[in-house]
C-alpha cells in the first residue's frame, strides 16, 4: 500500500516536473510562435480560404464560389502564359547560375596569392539589392544608351531590343537574375569545396589522376550534398522572382515576363481580384512543395554523402 502511494507520488512529481518543463519551453518559444502564427500559418490558411471566394479589395469575402477561381485559372490564357513563362524562366536560370557559380567556386578554391580578393568579388552580388541590380541592368539594356548594345555595336552586332521584344525580354530578366544569384551560390559552393579533405586529392594524385578526372571523380561527387542544397534554393528562388520584373519590364511585352509572383501581385493589388490571386498563390505554394518533395525523393538518391 505504502509503496504504491510513494510510486504515485513520484509519478505525480514527475508529471508536475514535465509540465513545468513544458511551460518553460513554451515560454521561450512563445514570441516565435506568435509571430509565425500571425504572419505565416494564418496567412497561408487564409489564402487557401480566399481562393474559394469572391473577395473585394478590402479583404471582405463576398460569396463562396467553390472551385470557380481554380477553373478560371485553367481557362485563363494569361495565367497559362504566366505558368509557361515561369517554367521556362526556371529552366534558363537554374542551370545557368549553378554552372557559373560552380566554375567560380572551383577556380577560387585553388590556394593562390590574392585569392581573398577574388573570393570577395565573386561573393559581391549577395550585397546587391534586387532594386539596385535591376536598375543597373535596366540602364545596361537600354537600346541606344546602354553599355551592352554599345559594346556589341563595336563588333557590329545589334542593336538588340533586350527588354522590348517578347523573344528577348525573358532572357534579359534571366541574365539579370543569374547575375544576382551568383554571390550566394558561390559562397555556399566554395564552403563545400573547402570541406573536402585534402587527403582525397593526395591519394588520387599518387594514382596518377589528372586535373579533370579529379574534378569529376572526386570533387563533384563529394560536393553533391552541397550542390543539392544549392539546387533547391536556386529553384525556389527563381519561382519567387519579382523585383527585377517590376523594374525591368512590368510583366511585358505581351505578358512574356509575367511570372507567377508578378501575376499574383498584379491580380491582387492592381486589379483587386483577391480571390483569383489567392488561387494563384496556392498554385505557387503547391508547386514549391512538389518541387521540394521531388528533389528530396529523387535527388537525394544521386547524392553522395560522406
Amino acid at each position: 500500500m505504502e509503496i504504491t502511494n510513494s510510486n504515485e507520488a513520484a509519478a505525480k512529481r514527475l508529471r508536475k516536473k514535465e509540465w513545468k518543463l513544458f511551460g518553460t519551453g513554451m515560454l521561450y518559444l512563445l514570441p516565435a510562435i506568435v509571430f509565425m502564427a500571425v504572419f505565416l500559418f494564418y496567412p497561408i490558411v487564409k489564402t487557401l480560404y480566399f481562393s474559394f471566394f469572391d473577395v473585394t479589395g478590402g479583404g471582405v469575402t463576398e460569396r463562396f464560389v467553390g472551385l470557380k477561381n481554380y477553373a478560371k485559372l485553367l481557362s485563363s490564357q494569361e495565367f497559362l502564359q504566366s505558368m509557361k513563362a515561369t517554367f521556362l524562366f526556371v529552366l534558363y536560370v537554374v542551370p545557368g547560375e549553378i554552372i557559373i557559380s560552380l566554375f567560380l567556386a572551383v577556380i577560387a578554391s585553388e590556394k593562390l596569392k590574392g585569392m581573398g580578393f577574388f573570393r570577395t568579388i565573386f561573393s559581391s552580388t549577395l550585397g546587391v539589392s534586387v532594386a539596385a541590380g535591376a536598375t543597373v541592368f535596366l540602364f545596361m539594356f537600354h537600346p541606344s544608351l546602354g553599355a551592352i548594345n554599345n559594346v556589341l555595336g563595336m563588333v557590329g552586332i545589334g542593336p538588340i531590343e533586350w527588354l522590348t521584344s517578347s523573344n528577348a525580354a525573358l532572357i534579359s530578366i534571366a541574365i539579370t537574375t543569374i547575375w544576382m544569384h551568383i554571390g550566394i551560390n558561390f559562397i555556399i559552393l566554395l564552403g563545400g569545396l573547402q570541406n573536402i579533405p585534402e587527403e582525397m586529392y593526395e591519394s588520387a594524385k599518387i594514382d596518377g589522376a589528372g586535373y579533370y578526372s579529379r574534378l569529376f571523380k572526386i570533387t563533384i561527387p563529394l560536393l553533391s550534398p552541397v550542390l543539392f542544397f544549392v539546387l533547391i534554393i536556386a529553384v525556389i528562388g527563381s519561382f519567387q522572382t519579382f523585383g527585377q520584373i517590376d523594374l525591368l519590364t512590368g510583366g511585358g511585352p505581351n505578358n512574356s515576363t509575367n511570372l507567377i509572383v508578378y501575376s499574383i501581385y498584379q491580380q491582387a493589388f492592381s486589379f483587386g481580384h483577391f480571390g483569383f490571386a489567392s488561387a494563384q498563390a496556392i498554385v505557387l505554394f503547391v508547386i514549391i512543395l512538389i518541387v521540394t518533395i521531388l528533389q528530396f525523393r529523387y535527388g537525394e538518391r544521386k547524392v553522395h554523402y560522406q
Binding site: 505565416l40 480566399f50 499574383i264 491582387a268 505554394f285
Partner: peptide, 25 residues
C-alpha cells in the same frame, strides 16, 4: 514543434502576401 517550425520553410513568402497585407492594413 521544431518540425512544425522547419516546415514553414516550405511556405513561399510570396504566397502569403495577400492576407499579410490585409493584416497590416
Amino acid at each position: 514543434i521544431f518540425f512544425l517550425f522547419l516546415s514553414t520553410m516550405l511556405i513561399p513568402w510570396e504566397a502569403t502576401i495577400i492576407p499579410n497585407f490585409l493584416t497590416i492594413l
